[in-house]
Design a protein around this nucleic acid. Structure first.
Lengths: 118, 118
DNA sequence: CACATAAATCCATTAATCTGGAAATATGGA
DNA sequence: TCCATATTTCCAGATTAATGGATTTATGTG
């Protein structure tokens, strides 16, 4: 993930329909959702959703594979993580003091998914 | 940080001059950088940079305070962290399995700022 | 006050993005 | 083969974003 990749990913997510679609796809991992169902969920025409999916796919954030007559889209979680890491590296590089509160914030998120554990 | 805030922040960062300016401002915390120096650093005309700073400021990612004749801009780290948390919550909510690799990725970043520690 | 510096605002031009109708392509079934 | 379904591609109009010249506002200095 270089700067150009990050810019493309940020631009892809900086659009309401695409952000919501991507969130839905993350929530739908690892099953994926067909293009038509994504269009219905977003209340958008099929060709409009297709254009949005193309933007997300070009940014590497989603991928579609044909499954019968449908094309099943899935979020690329590794790519998404790479984006988050790219962003956080800006504040972390040699500046853990600045970045530390981020780990505190994320800790809540982390624990919410773990059963009560050490 | 609601969805609308996140969209504005993403759009603000999805532009080369603004992303680089924001990264410079993070690196310059807590001192800040004057608007004119930011324009020089980005090799952009002063009014163009002013427009970009206005976008970043409206997104809450930076803030400018007058210091003599200059206006000193600083990154709003809390807001930036809120954006990262907003993004990661999508994959973390009840799905720690999906999100776990993110913490592994960020751990490198975390340790790079800490002196060898437990 | 007169002048220089720093940044924002105004404005117009250009470029990019969003949107959706219409047509094309791909798959599966009778 | 013929038809229905699912999705993409093509294309054009409408909206929004980026850019930079000229001007204006704000501040500091002599």
């Amino acid at each position: 993930m270089d700067e150009s990749d990050a810019l493309e990913a940020l631009a892809a997510l900086a659009q309401p329909t695409r952000l919501n679609t991507f969130r839905l796809l993350i929530a739908s991992e690892p099953d994926g959702v067909a293009a038509g169902e994504l269009a219905r969920a977003a209340k958008a025409p099929q060709n409009t959703m297709s254009a949005h999916l193309s933007v997300l796919a070009n940014a590497g954030l989603v991928r579609g594979v044909r499954r019968g007559r449908s094309i099943l889209y899935r979020a690329d979680l590794a790519r998404f993580r790479a984006l988050v890491v790219f962003l956080t590296q800006d504040c972390c590089a040699g500046r853990a003091d600045i970045c530390a509160p981020l780990f505190a914030d994320l800790a809540t998120c982390r624990n919410s998914g773990e059963a009560a554990d050490a």
